[in-house]
């Protein structure tokens, strides 16, 4: 069963409420310096920011709750995802979350961050670019290899010799 937009938004508001309560009850008191006796407390602005978030999330939840209780029909733009509406969403990027797509892109990125520390920039970057191109649907192996080699080499040269910044991870050409 597909979640409607209104349900998804309600879950998001609930998560925000939970996050705000966690911040107010735990994170801000513990990870904020004690009041030094002058000026404003270090916790003041974080509390204000979190309170604004909490108030808005509660207000939005209350609004959805009241509409639902009174069985008032919600406008179609608030109820449905733009991709399901006639004519699509225009410039809006609002829509369903595509978790398999996210995983396909994010996992190679996370692996790159981890691998680069062990196998070095050159090998990790080459492997990352090959995997990424495969993940987005490229099956032209020669093109993928050429793009990976050129991009890895260009950024290596730009960083190492252009800006004098060491590339991340073990330096295999040093």
């Amino acid at each position: 069963m597909q979640v409607t937009r209104i349900k998804r938004d309600s879950i998001a508001y609930l998560l925000i409420v939970g996050f705000c309560i966690l911040m107010l009850a735990w994170a801000i008191p513990i990870y904020t310096p004690a009041y030094p006796g002058y000026g404003a407390s270090a916790a003041l602005v974080p509390i204000v920011a979190v309170s604004v978030m909490l108030f808005m999330a509660c207000l939005s939840l209350m609004f959805i709750g009241v509409s639902s209780y009174l069985k008032k029909p919600m406008p179609v733009e608030e109820r449905e995802f733009p991709e399901d509406l006639e004519g699509g969403g225009g410039f809006t990027q609002v829509g369903r979350i595509n978790l398999p797509h996210l995983a396909r892109i994010m996992i190679p990125c996370v692996l790159l961050v981890v691998a680069i520390e062990y196998i070095g920039y050159v090998l990790a970057s080459f492997a990352f670019l090959m995997i990424l191109q495969y993940a987005i649907g490229s099956r032209k192996w020669l093109q993928s290899i050429v793009v990976s080699i050129i991009l890895t080499a260009v950024l290596y040269i730009v960083m190492r010799y252009g800006f004098g910044v060491p590339v991340p991870g073990p330096q295999i050409f040093e």
Partner: peptide
């Protein structure tokens, strides 16, 4: 796009 997106993504990382 097959060439463009990996370039932009890798440029973001670096």
């Amino acid at each position: 796009a097959m060439i463009l997106y990996p370039i932009v993504m890798f440029t973001c990382i670096m």
